[in-house]
């Protein structure tokens, strides 16, 4: 059940990324490029995605997930150095290539060698993140 729901969700996510054009890096970089030919498509994608998710969060009230267990805990409000620094590093990579984790998987079949190399580098980065994160924590504690 949980497996089938994961497959369904992944499939819908992939279809959404394909239909929205978000696997085209020029659209993503076009959104970020406020001094060039600015492309607002990404805002429509975000808006279109946030509305059903807002309804979904409302529906979690007083219910339990279909597969049982419990819903994620209420959001934390702690803004730490990890959240800020990690997001800045992510944003730099996102701007450089116009790819983020979801679209990098969704476009793997038609993204050519560049897409494969990006995926390989991203996996290496994810593997190194726990070590780098621990080092950042030590620096943050010391300062």
């Amino acid at each position: 059940m949980r497996f089938m729901l994961s497959v369904l969700s992944g499939g819908l996510f992939g279809a959404g990324l394909f239909v929205s054009g978000m696997t085209d890096t020029t659209k993503v970089q076009g959104w970020l490029d406020v001094f060039g030919a600015w492309d607002p498509t990404l805002a429509f994608v975000m808006g279109g995605a946030i509305i059903p998710m807002m309804i979904a969060w409302q529906l979690t009230r007083g219910r339990t997930p279909l597969v049982g267990g419990s819903f994620p805990a209420p959001p934390q409000h702690k803004i730490g150095h990890r959240l800020v620094l990690g997001s800045v590093l992510f944003g730099m990579g996102w701007g450089l290539a116009g790819l983020c984790p979801g679209p990098s998987v969704a476009s793997l079949s038609y993204g050519g060698a560049g897409g494969l190399v990006f995926m390989a580098a991203m996996l290496v980065g994810m593997g190194a993140a726990p070590t780098i994160g621990a080092r950042i924590d030590r620096i943050a504690e010391a300062s």
Partner: peptide
């Protein structure tokens, strides 16, 4: 329009993952 439709599908994917798998 493609962005809105695709975005809605992405939101639906997130809703299935949340309401289904928690």
């Amino acid at each position: 329009i493609h962005g809105l439709i695709g975005g809605a599908l992405i939101g639906l994917a997130g809703a299935v993952y949340l309401l289904g798998a928690g």
